[in-house]
Design a protein around this nucleic acid. Structure first.
Lengths: 349, 349
DNA sequence: GTCCGAATTGAAACCGGTTACTTAGTTTCA
DNA sequence: TGAAACTAAGTAACCGGTTTCAATTCGGAC
């Protein structure tokens, strides 16, 4: 009978290295951290042995003694959403460049789960938590959640992409108003007056802001506001875009342009438009948000808003590290850029 | 001058709890782990105090003493790829259900990075590593990488979605041959004989297998093989699908059906087809792989292959845990299913 | 030749848990 | 009633590093 080979090939430790090099563990630790000088001879001997055994210091032991895990936790609504995936990868890269690792958790839009994951990240002793999407996008913050975050914030700083009123979370926000302004002015300059806004949900802060700016821009150009062109009582995916756009057609409305709440929703809007016998962009122009790869897969390619993801990620990580060190500004803003592609064109006369 | 508030609101520890409950840390630890009996009275008192301070045991200290981090590292080529994202989320869910947390790293297809990330995961003392995509998809394994993985395997088991010859990695594989068979028989049953295969790269194992099965199925139905209908010297994205499909048209070929290497590539193939004046599916049928949300966004919706992601994830996590415990089979296979949508139809006469 | 400071290095405490071993207090049952 | 058996809870060692503090060595100045 064979022993269950439980892969317990015990790790080699700093003691083993010290022993073989005939020095103390303190000395080995010194060459590992590089904080203090160590004699050239011993240093080289130690390095050779470390290399020989491919020794990697145990991150847990390390974290235990200096209370620095060098991990930033990222809580995201759903990485399968290309916007979040892009942003996550940007964070990962930014973190790497400053010596941090990121730990990802998906809340999958389950509120209870979000609270649970905050606890889990706290337990892993991440040094900071970045929350992207989910509860922090709510137009009016959920009090229960605010309380939970405040509790966590007693020990671990939290950075959010949206806002969380009643907390001291640092924020990195998208200038959604500016983004909408860019899209609207683009469409208006092409002669559009009947502009629909479709997808997403008005209870989400950025969506609310987009609507505000939508109205504001119409007003600026003296274009009357028609509530029936607005359909924001759904979600951020393709199906929702499809359903909500169908609703607008069902009301007998025939916009010459549609602003979809994001790229994914735009694909559903496109389906609805085509099914109703219109062409894009000849009959109806379509624009989206986020410049995810989805917008480049669409036929025609989608005019959309880009955010410079690497910079966005950098801001988030910087905010996290600032928060860890207890310094830095409370809020940074990411500037949106218009990306014009083939889905938007001159309004039909 | 103000002290830099470095968020050092020191965590409360098991000692604090023990002190307040007037018991030893051992007793507190016992109620935390639940391994041993503790008197009802003390237990309740301790639980109350734990709750009062929202105490979470330090995962690092815990991991240090029992050498179990309860973390599985996942090394994925790129979460932005919807196939990987779906699979990652499936793993995350499966891991959660057995009490594990997952740590995600993106290799972003940089070989050197892959090796580096293996080290990093090892350093975090993850109990197992699951590698999805990247080097483990190579048709012929890179020897340098095999050596690296073997080195890691001395202490941490590695599970792969592909294969890594020369290692003892457990495998969870997709039956790509079966998948291709399903697609081909579907198309052939619709009367297609001129079937192109486009996108991806022949140096990737699954792609190689698909080609094998492609030829095999043609043979089975006595359909001649035409090498010029094959274009597999690119990548797995939309642009590549577009370019490679253009190549086929440039050769003067006019297939009645196209198998794209995955859903993303299919979007590019679609663009090429439309630009050449053909309709889908009336003139040319198009099918893809992976049943990612992309396939449902396309117009028309794409016929594709689904893998039951939750099960796939479950297999991967099970394999990882089996590997940790030194038991279980070396290989499991995921069965593909055909999902018929509107992009495939009867062949034109 | 003596003394001082700088440079190395080692001993030991500590980080925050878990757990083997021990002790004290109860039961069980002959 | 007393010995054996069991239970609850405490003591202390340990996990694998980092770091403070003290000791030792060495070179150079006077």
């Amino acid at each position: 009978m064979q022993m269950p080979k439980t892969n317990e090939n015990k790790m080699i430790t700093i003691y083993d290295i010290a022993k073989e090099a005939q020095v103390s563990t303190a000395t080995v630790s010194r060459v590992l951290t590089g904080n203090t000088k160590v004699g050239k001879e011993k240093r080289e001997k130690i390095l050779a042995i470390i290399k020989k055994y491919n020794f990697k210091p145990n991150a847990m032991a390390r974290g235990l003694s200096d209370t620095k895990s060098k991990i930033i936790g990222i809580l995201v609504a759903d990485v399968r959403n290309p916007f979040y995936a892009d942003l996550f990868v940007a964070c990962e890269q930014a973190a790497k460049s400053v010596g941090y690792t990121v730990l990802l958790c998906n809340s999958l839009d389950v509120m209870q789960q979000e609270e649970h994951l905050l606890d889990r990240l706290a337990q892993q002793r991440v040094e900071a938590i970045i929350q992207i999407g989910g509860r922090v996008d709510d137009l009016v913050s959920n009090m229960e959640y605010v309380e939970k975050v405040n509790q966590i914030m007693n020990t671990i700083p939290v950075v959010v992409t949206g806002k969380l009123e009643g907390t001291k979370c640092k924020m990195v926000r998208i200038d959604s108003m500016k983004a909408m302004e860019l899209l609207m002015e683009h469409l208006i300059s092409l002669g559009h007056h009947q502009i629909a806004m479709v997808g997403g949900n008005i209870k989400v802060l950025s969506t609310y802001e987009k609507l505000l700016q939508y109205k504001h821009t119409l007003n600026k150009y003296h274009i009357p506001y028609d509530e029936e062109l607005i359909s924001l009582e759904g979600s951020y995916n393709s199906e929702s875009g499809y359903t909500l756009m169908n609703d607008i057609f069902a009301k007998g409305k025939h916009p010459t342009a549609v602003v979809a709440i994001n790229d994914c929703a735009a694909t559903g809007v496109q389906r609805s438009i085509l099914e109703h016998g219109y062409r894009i962009p000849e009959d109806i122009s379509l624009v989206g948000y986020d410049n995810t790869y989805v917008s480049q897969m669409m036929i025609p390619r989608l005019t959309t808003i880009d955010y410079d993801y690497p910079l966005f990620g950098k801001y988030l990580i910087e905010a996290a590290i600032d928060a860890i060190e207890g310094k830095g500004e409370m809020m940074k803003t990411v500037t949106p850029h218009l990306v014009v592609r083939e889905s938007s064109g001159k309004a039909k006369q």
